[in-house]
Write a protein that binds this DNA or RNA. Structure first.
Length: 452
DNA sequence: TCTGGGGTCCTAGGACCC
DNA sequence: TCTGGGGTCCTAGGACCC
């Protein structure tokens, strides 16, 4: 998920809207998934612990102790299983119901400290601290951190700075060096024009940051920059604007300006609705029959429809794709087919029907499929949708909407898939493997003992 | 045996039109 | 044989994020 670019600057250098008195904080949960597991199993505190991706494929979160053992992000679990046993590393499947709920608790807590909060990802939020300039911001940061820890059990780090990019860097410092006790601040500009703010100590700080660790610089750009002798954040900050614009597009230029203390990326308070929606999974075991594949694809389509309705939108196009396992020495096949819906819709049966249609046209017998998915595009908010001659009659539309609303509210109350379409299957043998999942500590009353 | 899922934005280039 | 200039729209591919 990435909602990064929302500009406050004009793209032509020299026409910048001055905004250099902003103060951003980035609150980031430490080893979030690992920390969530620990909240409900204190036994894990102080032990090496990893959380695995879907299907228990690879490592996607590590406690500090696991990091210290040299466990890398993204390592395939099967290659490390022996090592984990040997070093007593505790291993968990990902438990998104738990992490999602813990995330909400953290975000609600953070919301008490600022009127303006951007939830950037499951474990990160930007806070607008503009109006707290009179306070000691380091002190305020420590108070936020203490409160989140106390109310949710989750440890966080806080980085503060005049731009989002600098707040990100500050957060890194807060995490990396324990002497800062989880809070680090890049000072506000003390002088200078809006186009050239003066920030004390900035060069010395950025000199210590690898260019690859700058927000917006990925692996590819890091390699490219290195070729031109740019290895750290200070060198990137001082790079020529036109050159950066050419080599890294407008987004790269924004990163450079942000490093200088010129805010280009505003806070996004309400996430804009998604323009495309995808649900895809790798299967827990290979799927080799059309019957099973139909269930899986129907389930993906149904989930897409739920996401669509959750953001009050409809989709005009639907695509189905499937693929075999490229890591295996077996016959390979993959394909994708996109189709237009007669009218933009968020009605689950319509989406399932079209998805199954597409599937039948690309499915080939004789292969073991590893992964499949459904994608929706041409997604528009209900309110602005073009009307069509093919639209269902108002009466039918109202009935469909009522039915979907009822379905969604039952599932919201009693848990996902309490009510579902038969086409999506019951046994679901293709479902993800998650053999090491912790309990649904916060979200599932069904698992509590029933007291009579 | 076993290698995640879900997004966004930008640019270049081709098709097409006048 | 000669063979403009400028605009729009769409798609593919490349980059990024967590």
């Amino acid at each position: 998920m990435l909602r990064r670019r929302c500009c406050r600057v004009e793209t032509r250098p020299g026409e910048l809207e001055s905004d250099y008195m902003s103060v951003f904080a980035l609150a980031d949960c430490n080893n979030f998934y690992a920390s969530c597991e620990r909240v409900f199993n204190p036994d894990l505190i102080g032990r090496p612990l990893v959380v695995l991706s879907n299907n228990d494929g690879c490592v996607i979160a590590r406690s500090n102790e696991a990091k210290a053992l040299g466990v890398a992000m993204g390592e395939p679990f099967f290659k490390r299983e022996g090592f984990f046993k040997q070093h007593g590393v505790r291993v968990y499947s990902s438990n998104y119901a738990l992490y999602g709920d813990m995330s909400q608790r953290v975000m609600r807590t953070l919301g008490r400290f600022t009127p303006e909060l951007e939830i950037y990802s499951i474990d990160e939020a930007f806070l607008d601290l503009d109006s707290f300039g009179a306070r000691d911001l380091d002190d305020y940061g420590r108070e936020i951190r203490r409160t989140v820890r106390q109310w949710t059990g989750i440890p966080i780090s806080i980085g503060i700075g005049p731009t989002k990019t600098l707040a990100k860097i500050a957060n890194r410092m807060a995490k990396k060096f324990p002497e800062h006790q989880g809070v680090f601040r890049v000072p506000q500009p003390v002088a200078g024009l809006p186009r050239a703010p003066v920030i004390p100590g900035l060069d010395a700080l950025l000199d210590r940051i690898d260019v690859a660790d700058v927000w917006g610089v990925g692996r590819r750009y890091a390699i490219k920059l290195e070729r031109y002798g740019i290895r750290n954040a200070r060198q990137l900050k001082d790079a020529d604007e036109a050159w950066v614009r050419k080599k890294m597009t407008i987004q790269g230029l924004h990163t450079v300006l942000e490093l200088r203390g010129i805010s280009c990326l505003a806070l996004e308070l309400a996430p804009p609705p998604k323009k495309s929606i995808m649900v895809s999974r790798s299967f827990g075991r290979p799927v080799a029959t059309l019957t099973e594949m139909r269930e899986a694809v129907a389930a993906f389509a149904a989930r897409c429809a739920e996401k669509l309705r959750a953001q009050q939108s409809r989709a005009a196009f639907l695509a189905v794709f499937l693929m075999t396992n490229p890591h295996k020495d077996e016959p390979q096949y993959s394909n994708i087919l996109t189709a237009r819906l007669p009218v933009a819709t968020a009605n689950t049966p319509d989406l399932i029907r079209l998805a199954l249609d597409c599937l039948e046209r690309i499915y080939k017998d004789g292969y073991s499929y590893k992964k499949a998915g459904v994608m929706l595009s041409g997604v528009e908010p209900d309110a602005t949708r073009q009307l069509s001659l093919l639209d269902p009659t108002p009466r039918l539309a109202a009935r469909q909407n009522d039915l979907m609303r009822a379905l969604d509210s039952v599932n919201a109350k009693w848990g996902r898939n309490t009510l579902h379409y038969a086409a999506t299957g019951i046994g679901r043998p293709w479902q993800m493997r998650q053999e090491r999942k912790s309990g649904r500590f916060t979200t599932c009353w069904q698992e509590l003992p029933i007291v009579r």
